[in-house]
Design a protein around this nucleic acid. Structure first.
Lengths: 339, 339
DNA sequence: GGGGTATGTTGAAACGTTTTAACATTTCGC
DNA sequence: GCGAAATGTTAAAACGTTTCAACATACCCC
């Protein structure tokens, strides 16, 4: 049996072979794939049948070359080690998977250089658009995307230009919410643990904290600035506190708070009896800690999903797309650590 | 000023325009990009200069179309919500970024169907290779990749075929390590909390636990099977234990253990005084819990990185590549919860 | 300085789609 | 039934790279 089908060759089947077997032209097969409504029901059925039989899978590179863009988007994350961001990535991935897009994942690890290298790589891959959680100074990366006409949506960082979409949570409001809660519970001597302040998130949360104090007209804010948002950094910060215990501690994220909590308990400091503690992000693991943590809840999954929707809208309907700067309000979740 | 350069047009600059400005043929520019050693130093310098001036970025789709494969790999993860897997993804991303490859991220959410859809998408994107943490029955997905000649490496699941690379940690040894430790500390009535048992990880860890008992010739193992590896599932499991407290609990992952721990402490059960507790994975957040958790450490970042290296070796040197099944040994990390 | 070998460079042919204008065919109003 | 309009289908020209055989050129040894 030399060869089973007239046109069958060894290589992967292409659109031509489908066309031949279905008795139509390659153009029609392409239409079945991309604009099914333009081809007669009967023809379409036949072609689809052949596609299934032959196990044909379209060559995305060729499609992308001809069409000028492919079915992938880029996702640039600030910190792949932080559950807040990976949860966001999950939201993005879920939506893109539904719409049959691929997601090219990049981590900038908060370094401008790495961010720029990755933007170049994404441009090379002909991504249709890019989602970015920008490092403090990403102007250049975004400009490069713009000059290549690659749409982008900023994630967890508000856009200042009106020709840019962004999806964020109000961190100033979050900081205010946290400290207002502590004040209401009677705390006066409050410590903010967070950093580095060059990141927008930290700066905003601190600003919110100060705002709450101003509004209340009472209380003082001490600060311990750390250079990482990890449990380890929380440990170190807590050591500084032991000398002069405050009434309450506001940590710029839950990982820090978990570190602080552990040191306090080890030293026999009652939480919340002696010191109240509040975190930020409301990650799942915060609930599971020995003294469940009061925290500020953000919806990372939703953020990712909505940003992805916005990006796709801009990519697929550049004409009618209206740029939006969406800002969610965070939510206070009260648990034992402040009760 | 009608046009600044003779060949300058509006669209993105291509290899031809670089060639023209540098006074060479397009083929030579391509060689500068892909086989720099084949082109004379002087010519190369000139071309590189022009590339920089024009801000030329190669069109990856065209390259991929002609060459038959692109500079991306696929990464299929079992569970994007689990720090163990996201840490693995970080290892993969780091290496691929160094080698200037893009990583297309997919989550299978443990569903065979989603896995297969994603494999199809990856094939369409012409990925060079795929890293898979397979769901329990992924034979078909892997077969599809093979018939398309797309190399793959299995992650966190040992390959049974010798023409397949895999990188794993010995979960049987891990389970044995955990329970042997508990027995050594004097526990006799031990409970295993984990599930679902259809996942290889759970089945192996349980098998390891049983092995430890057999070897010791003493002790008994009760089991609470859950259907999710989350803190919430841990809570529920712990409720079952309260009626008849065991000497020790071995959880198939740290998230479960954190959930169990919280319920025990809430009920006034001393840990480790009354019940010892051991987890699995040694995730960062486990250390930060109120009673630091004894756990079985696995090196997810390293797993990801090594698997990525293996995959690239297979992709780039298919001739000389030797398939390997690498298995790491896990490590016992003793902390307060068993001391 | 002539035959042979390295060493660089080139031109043109792919790669597998999408797109477009042009061509058939059917449908419809009258 | 006739012409016009609507509906399907097609052939051929892109898209921007890589590859490969062929061609120059420089170098070397006797």
């Amino acid at each position: 049996m030399p060869r089973s089908e007239p046109g069958s060759r060894d290589g992967p089947v292409g659109i031509k072979q489908v066309a031949q077997l279905a008795g139509v032209s390659p153009g029609t097969v392409s239409n079945v794939l991309n604009k099914p409504e333009r081809v007669a029901a009967k023809t379409r059925a036949r072609v689809e049948q052949v596609i299934k039989e032959l196990g044909f899978v379209r060559n995305g590179s060729a499609a992308s070359l001809r069409a000028g863009h492919g079915r992938t988007i880029g996702l640039m994350m600030l910190d792949l080690g932080n559950p807040f961001f990976t949860e966001m990535a999950r939201g993005v991935e879920d939506l893109m998977s539904e719409r049959e897009y691929g997601v090219i994942l990049c981590g900038s690890a908060s370094q401008v250089g790495r961010e720029q290298r990755n933007v170049r790589m994404l441009a090379e891959q002909q991504v249709r658009g890019v989602l970015v959680t920008p490092v403090s100074d990403s102007g250049e990366s975004l400009a490069r995307l713009r000059e290549r006409n690659i749409p982008s949506v900023m994630l967890d960082h508000a856009a200042t230009r009106s020709d840019q979409c962004s999806v964020t949570v109000d961190d100033v409001a979050g900081g205010r919410l946290a400290v207002a809660h502590l004040l209401e519970r009677g705390a006066r001597d409050i410590v903010f643990v967070g950093g580095p302040l060059t990141t927008r998130q930290n700066a905003d949360r601190r600003a919110g904290a100060r705002k709450a104090l101003r509004e209340a007209g009472c209380g003082t804010l001490r600060e311990v600035i750390v250079d990482e948002m990890t449990p380890r950094a929380g440990h170190e910060a807590a050591e500084h506190l032991l000398a002069e215990l405050p009434d309450a501690v506001f940590c710029a994220n839950d990982l820090l708070a978990m570190g602080v909590l552990r040191v306090l308990l080890q030293q026999g400091v009652r939480v919340p009896g002696r010191v109240m503690l509040i975190g930020y992000d409301d990650i799942e693991y915060a609930l599971a800690s020995a003294i469940p943590l009061t925290s500020i809840r953000q919806p990372p999954y939703k953020l990712g999903r909505i940003a992805a929707e916005l990006l796709l809208d801009e990519c697929e309907h550049p004409g009618s797309h209206a740029h939006q700067q969406i800002m969610f309000q965070p939510e206070l979740v009260v648990r034992e650590s402040t009760s």
